[in-house]
Simulated assay, not measured.
Amino acid sequence: MAARIEHLVTSGSFSLDGGTWDVDNNVWIVGDDDECVVIDAAHDADAILAAVGDRRLVGILCTHAHDDHIGAVAGVQAKRTAPTYLHPDDMVLWDRVYPDAPPSRPLENGQHIQVAGIDLEVLHTPGHSPGAVCFYAPALGTVFSGDTLFHGGPGATGRSFSDFPTIIASITDTLLTLPASTVVLTGHGESTTIGAEAEHVDEWIARGH
């Protein structure tokens, strides 16, 4: 069977800079009937494991290391042997959640990860966090944007380790170079397209957030 994208919404909390907020996260699974990857193991390991089923889990791919996006990594790995991939620039955040359990493998810009005949290209898109990445699947016409780009604007940059000019540069120099029809599957909330968001960059810059 051809590769497909599956979607879970998991719920929990996000904590940083002394505050805690309730959040719903998108968890994306890319694969076929035999193997898959999980993009962002958020909150609920049991739900993620149920969705993976008996398929070979090729890896857990982290768009970044805020606690709401990696909180279920340990629970998934307790039941399944699979490497976790993270950009090294986000270790400052990872270590706050898993100080004694480093991720298995580093991510770098331009890296390619294969699953179920699909190529996922790693795009380093700092700004929301230093090591934020997106995963571009041209065969699926899709980019998994984590918290770099949402329906309606860039990810938040008001907390530690984030920067607004940097995220704008990541979006304009990297994501907006993708085909306008590319579907953007986000870390929270509804999906969008590259073309739909490209129309509003000047508005985001004018707002400054």
Rank of each mutant, 00 (worst) to 15 (best):
V9K: 14
V9C: 09
S11T: 15
G12P: 07
S13Q: 14
S15R: 14
G18E: 07
T20W: 01
D22W: 01
D24M: 04
N25T: 05
N25L: 03
V27N: 09
G31F: 05
D32M: 04
E35R: 04
V37Q: 06
V37H: 02
A41W: 07
D44P: 03
A45M: 08
D46F: 01
D46L: 10
A47N: 02
I48Q: 11
I48C: 11
L49M: 07
A50S: 15
A51W: 13
G53H: 02
G53T: 07
D54Y: 01
V58I: 15
G59W: 07
L61D: 11
C62E: 14
H64A: 04
D68H: 13
I70M: 12
G71S: 15
V73S: 10
V76S: 03
K79T: 10
P83L: 12
P83Q: 10
P83G: 06
T84V: 15
Y85D: 10
P88D: 12
P88A: 05
P88L: 12
P88T: 06
D89H: 06
D89Q: 12
D89K: 13
M91T: 08
W94G: 05
V97G: 00
D100W: 03
A101L: 14
P102L: 12
P103T: 05
R105F: 09
G110D: 15
Q111P: 01
I113E: 09
V115A: 07
V115K: 07
A116Q: 11
A116I: 01
I118M: 14
I118R: 12
L120P: 04
L120W: 10
L120R: 10
H124F: 05
H124K: 06
G131H: 02
A132Q: 14
F135Q: 01
L140E: 08
G141Y: 04
F144W: 03
S145P: 02
S145F: 03
G146I: 00
L149I: 01
L149S: 01
G153I: 05
G155I: 08
A156L: 01
G158S: 11
S160Q: 09
D163I: 00
I171M: 03
I171K: 02
D173R: 03
L175C: 11
L175S: 01
P179W: 09
S181Q: 15
V184E: 11
L185V: 11
G189F: 11
I194V: 15
E197R: 00
H200M: 09
I205Q: 08
I205D: 05
A206E: 15
A206D: 11
